[in-house]
Write a protein that binds this DNA or RNA. Structure first.
Lengths: 155, 155
DNA sequence: TTTTACTGTAACTATCATTGTTACAGAAAG
DNA sequence: CTTTCTGTAACAATGATAGTTACAGTAAAA
């Protein structure tokens, strides 16, 4: 995703935090999957998500960077998936909108004179990586295809 | 924890998001565990975490509500753990600072006229619960005692 | 019983990431 | 060359968290 300078922040918090981007990404991709044969315009996506087209385009930029979609500018432009929904996992989507290489610091650096303050950061760091891995593994188990099927069933 | 009105926000995002509270909670509890025999003052905790005593006291209020600590006011007041560190899991700590009963909505309600917009919310909701459960299970595997041992080893 | 040193909490302000918006350059079909 | 898109910059709005000040209440100590 677009590099975020504030990535190095709050142990744990950030890596797991997907905010609304992940939900929006799944929503948008599900919609694209439902219209595999045509290019979908950001305006239409925005209408479904109930937000502004520019917000959608920003999201699509991340998804494009991750190789999940292609867009075409100009007349009759729009966006398509690059692969079949069964080949896209939630893990890929999650990483596309929340990938951060580093993390694991308190907002403020703990007091390094204090034994606990000194040792807590690396420990939380390891822990964060472990949890993050667990989440990614779980997300790997779900494909976009599965999501669409579940979504359609709701109706 | 202190009830947050904005809990009903952004599918996924919030439940997993522990922000700095979780890291701070683990830090504070580790410090209390290292001083089992005495009452620790919020000022001392704040010094180690490198923040304001009031921020610590707010956190302690959540931990107290969860039954993890007791505080005493007045002269020679301070805070203690209520149980042995080996009896406190990271799961308890996490829940103490991030418990939210409900979640799973986009910031804006998706367009209910659209099939995907209609079905995506419950699907993301289920998914969020699944992931959340996975994280909690993982956190259950770690005790505060283990954390302290790892922290001490860093030195 | 008065002083001292704490917690608990309310009420701010400050910070800062995300979202929403407007604007416009660039691209592609007609 | 006009129309209709995307891509992106720039900026305002929003909103949650963190930081701060202030003070009431409480308990030991003098």
């Amino acid at each position: 995703m677009r590099r975020r300078d504030w990535c190095v922040i709050s142990a744990f918090g950030l890596v797991l935090m997907a905010n609304s981007q992940f939900a929006m990404a799944v929503h948008v991709l599900a919609l694209l999957a439902n219209n595999c044969d045509e290019r979908v315009k950001s305006g239409l996506l925005a209408e479904s998500v109930n937000t502004n087209p520019v917000v959608i385009r920003r999201l699509l930029a991340d998804l494009h960077e991750a190789g999940l979609v292609v867009s075409q500018t100009g007349y009759c432009g729009g966006t398509c998936l690059t692969k079949h929904p069964s080949e896209i996992t939630l893990r890929e989507i999650f990483l596309a909108v929340s990938e951060c290489e580093v993390f694991s610091l308190h907002p403020n650096t703990p007091n390094q004179e204090c034994d606990v303050g000194l040792g807590i950061v690396p420990v939380l760091d390891e822990l964060g990586k472990e949890i993050n891995g667990t989440v990614l593994d779980k997300l790997e188990d779900h494909s976009l295809q599965e999501i669409i099927e579940r979504v359609i069933q709701i109706k």
